[in-house]
């Protein structure tokens, strides 16, 4: 068990490092001069500076060093929680992120939890329904939900629930009511994706012989569905939990922009537009860390839910049928 955990942790760290390195390489290779961008942001014409002044500034930000040196500097910085200074806003990137991460985390976690509940419930009902038209409708519903673009769902919600009914505010970060529509927007997509996978997994599980065994015992349909099918069907779907959380994080970029919420998603969108390299690098690293963390949790939960994984070790091995020679 300890080896399993250690292996997963090492794997998570390697993935995180790879994500950071890849992002750094892509941003470094962008065909633009970060110094010029920074000067433009400060309202200074690069031409008005002497080459010496420029060189001095580059030196101050470490931009005159080799790619490797810069990479090393960034990497060690990140390990100490220092993501450098924003080029456009001239403040430490870590401050920018910590300021906004609460809102985004709240949004993502709420959306992930809602998606989990809604997606599971939908898949459960779709496979449990016995009236065929209802069954078909519920089975097809996730495909519909997954095919609407998020900005469209968001605009529809704003139009209907804010402008017409006035139930929820269309924009803003204040209060629980401002959270409802962004969360729903993200959940429509995320729960649909989950439900699609779960329905398929349920159908597969319900065809297994042990379901017939359970029914032959005389158990009711709901007992078979809940006690025997659900857990087994959920196991293959667990792998997409990581993807699902990743989805809620990326969705926050669209959703925070449409609903003008302050958050990391909006920060990322602005940073990309202004080519604020340290901020983009930091946001990607933080998102990757979340993604890796969730996947790690899923991996560590697996053995608890599926006894077949690393359960036998150190226990009695299956006894072969005793052969009595006569």
């Amino acid at each position: 068990m300890a080896r399993y955990v250690a292996g997963r942790v090492v794997q998570a760290v390697v993935v995180l490092w790879a994500a950071f390195t890849l992002t750094f390489a892509i941003l470094y290779l962008l065909p633009s001069d970060p110094m010029e961008l920074q000067l433009a942001a400060a309202g200074v014409q690069p031409d008005s500076l002497t080459p010496d002044q420029l060189a001095a500034m580059k030196h101050r930000f470490g931009l005159d060093q080799s790619m490797w040196a810069q990479y090393w500097q960034h990497l060690t910085g990140v390990l100490h929680g220092d993501f450098g200074t924003s080029l456009s806003q001239q403040v430490p990137v870590s401050d920018l992120i910590t300021e906004r991460i609460d809102g985004t985390l709240l949004l993502s976690v709420t959306a992930a939890v809602l998606s989990l509940i809604a997606g599971s419930a939908l898949a459960y009902l779709a496979t449990f329904a016995r009236w065929n038209p209802l069954r078909v409708f519920l089975t097809r519903l996730p495909a519909l939900g997954a095919s609407f673009p998020q900005f469209f769902v968001a605009l529809f919600l704003i139009q209907f629930f804010s402008f017409q009914l006035g139930w929820f505010p269309a924009t803003g970060t204040e209060g629980a009511r401002s959270l409802v529509m962004p969360v729903v927007t993200i959940s429509v997509l995320a729960s649909s994706v989950l439900a699609q996978v779960l329905v398929k997994s349920f159908d597969e599980t319900l065809r297994q012989p042990y379901i017939a065994t359970a029914r032959a015992k005389g158990l009711s349909r709901s007992a078979v569905h809940l006690r025997h099918a659900f857990r087994n069907a959920a196991l293959p779907a667990m792998t997409i939990l990581g993807v699902l959380v990743g989805l809620t994080v990326t969705s926050s970029i669209v959703v925070e922009t449409v609903f003008t919420r302050e958050g990391v998603g909006k920060l990322a969108q602005e940073a990309v537009l202004s080519q604020d390299v340290p901020v983009v690098l930091a946001v990607v690293t933080v998102a990757a860390a979340m993604f890796v963390l969730v996947n790690l949790i899923v991996d560590l939960l697996y053995p608890l839910l599926d006894p077949r994984i690393s359960h036998t070790r150190g226990r009695v091995r299956p006894a072969p049928e005793v052969v009595t020679s006569t």
């Binding site: 297994q208 065994t213 005389g218 839910l305």
Partner: peptide, 24 residues
């Protein structure tokens, strides 16, 4: 039918390798 299953008619399924719920 459910009242018959189990209490009147018991079933021993074909393949014992897949006949038991693996997570119970």
């Amino acid at each position: 039918l459910r009242r018959l299953r189990g209490s009147v008619v018991g079933l021993i399924p074909q393949d014992p390798m897949v006949g038991l719920n693996p997570t119970q």
